[in-house]
Amino acid sequence: MQTTTATLKVASAAATGKYRWRVVDIIVASVIGVASGLIFWAWGQAWNPLSAPLEALAPGLGALLGGGWLFAGVLGGLIIRKPGAAVYTEVLAAVVSMLIGTQWGILTLLSGVVQGIGAEVVFALFLYANFKLYVAMLAGAGAGLALAINDLIVSYPGSDTPFVVIYTVSSIVSGIVLAGLLSWLAVKGLARTGALSRFAAGRQASVRV
């Protein structure tokens, strides 16, 4: 976010820098964040009954469902392609689900920030220029790792080593599949619908089709 605000202050309205957020970037990122927040919230409601059988199989395996809270950042990053997009969408999604009411209270916001950074770091490493499938999956993995670190400190601090290992691996796998792969497929599908015609992500894909 730091770099983003700095860029915004430097850039005048006339500037059309590659990293400057247009109004449509901000609003569509917001909309993705808000819609994702609703899904986060619904996911949170479904999470307890769904995770119970997984946990019964092996402790920490419930984290396989964690990707349901990770896709917003990856999706935002893939569509908007600007610095800060992953953090912004993930945080906004977390805030929306928090305002509706989750069991994690204000810590939902913390999760959002940490998970968003997890995905953002990967997009930044590729200089916001590569949005191929493997980058999306890496971003999902980054978000999954961030989720594991955050949860193990905040929610399960007293956990034993097997739990920590299973939880971390499950989170990363979940991040790769639910956040990375699914988001990438969603962007591809969205591009075909013409909904992304004002974005580079939409135009490249539609040329291919």
Binding site: V23, V24, I26, I27, V28, S30, V31, I32, V34, A35, I79, A186, G189, L190, T193, A195, L196, R198
Partner: peptide, 19 residues
Amino acid sequence: FALLVLSIRRGSKLATAME
């Protein structure tokens, strides 16, 4: 997915109106 399509379309329209 359908919700995402509809919301992004709405978002684009809203962006135009706000601009």
